[in-house]
Amino acid sequence: MADEPDAGEVAAVLLASFSVLLRRVRQVPAAGELTMPERSALSHLERSGPTTSSALAREVQITAQAMGTTIGALHTRGLVERRPDPDDGRRAVLTVTDAGRQALRDKRNARTELIAQALTSGMFTPAELDQLAAAAALLERLARNI
């Protein structure tokens, strides 16, 4: 009877593999390339919905000044919109524009395409592709339970 896998070893191998994969796909260029801070702010704003610059800065754990610079660049490119806060006219509420959503989609599509090309490059057998497909559901379940 085979020994059960050590959960700590499996965790270490998974984390190392994910780190390499994420590092590689984050390097994929896309049209209208976003900087890492811009992509982070835009993604967070898309997920969490309209918010202020200072609240967004707290969420992504950067200074309000750094977020202001990032938001300024996104606003100049038409990727975010500023509207007066209905509760406090001194503040602005930020929302992602259609162009901002498209920029994020373009980046995600470029990443998906990169992975799809690697999967169809002949480096993986049909059985291995089936294993990766099955593992995807397990990885999603793992992510939900962390």
Rank of each mutant, 00 (worst) to 15 (best):
Q61D: 09
S53Y: 02
F124Q: 03
A12G: 04
E46D: 14
D87Y: 01
V10E: 08
E4L: 15
T35H: 06
E38H: 06
Q65K: 05
G100P: 04
T95G: 14
R82S: 11
L22N: 14
R105S: 15
R39C: 06
F124W: 05
T35V: 05
A7N: 08
I146A: 09
Q102R: 06
T70C: 06
P86F: 07
A11H: 13
L34I: 10
R82P: 08
R108G: 01
P50L: 03
A7S: 12
S40P: 00
S43M: 10
R90G: 09
S40A: 11
S43R: 07
E38R: 01
D87W: 00
L138N: 03
L94F: 04
A118N: 03
G68C: 05
A12I: 09
A7P: 15
L114Y: 05
T52K: 03
G68T: 04
F124P: 02
R83H: 11
V93Y: 04
T125I: 03
S121A: 14
V60P: 01
D6I: 12
S19W: 11
A30I: 09
M1K: 07
V20W: 13
R47V: 14
A116Y: 13
G32M: 03
T35K: 03
A41F: 06
T97R: 02
A12V: 11
I71W: 10
Q131F: 14
M123T: 03
A143V: 07
A11S: 15
A66F: 00
L139H: 05
V96D: 01
T63M: 01
E113Y: 02
L129S: 05
I71H: 03
L14F: 13
S43Y: 08
T69Q: 12
G68Q: 07
A16Y: 02
A2S: 10
L132K: 01
L45F: 05
Q27V: 00
A57N: 08
Q102T: 11
T97A: 11
R90A: 11
T63E: 05
R82Q: 11
L56E: 01
E81D: 11
T112M: 03
A12F: 14
V13I: 15
Q61N: 04
G89T: 13
L56C: 04
M1L: 08
Q102S: 03
G89R: 12
A12C: 07
A41M: 03
V60K: 03
M67S: 07
A99C: 03
A66C: 00
D85C: 11
P29V: 02
G32A: 04
R90S: 13
R39Y: 13
L15H: 15
T35F: 13
A31V: 14
L79C: 05
R82Y: 13
P126H: 06
L132R: 00
A137R: 10
L74M: 07
L42W: 00
A103C: 04
A118F: 08
A133S: 14
P29E: 08
R77I: 00
A136F: 10
L21Q: 05
P37R: 01
A136H: 08
D98S: 10
E81A: 07
L139Y: 12
A92V: 04
R83G: 11
V96I: 13
E4W: 15
V13W: 14
T63K: 02
L14A: 09
A118E: 10
D6P: 08
T69M: 06
L22V: 10
A137P: 04
R39A: 07
A7Q: 07
L45H: 04
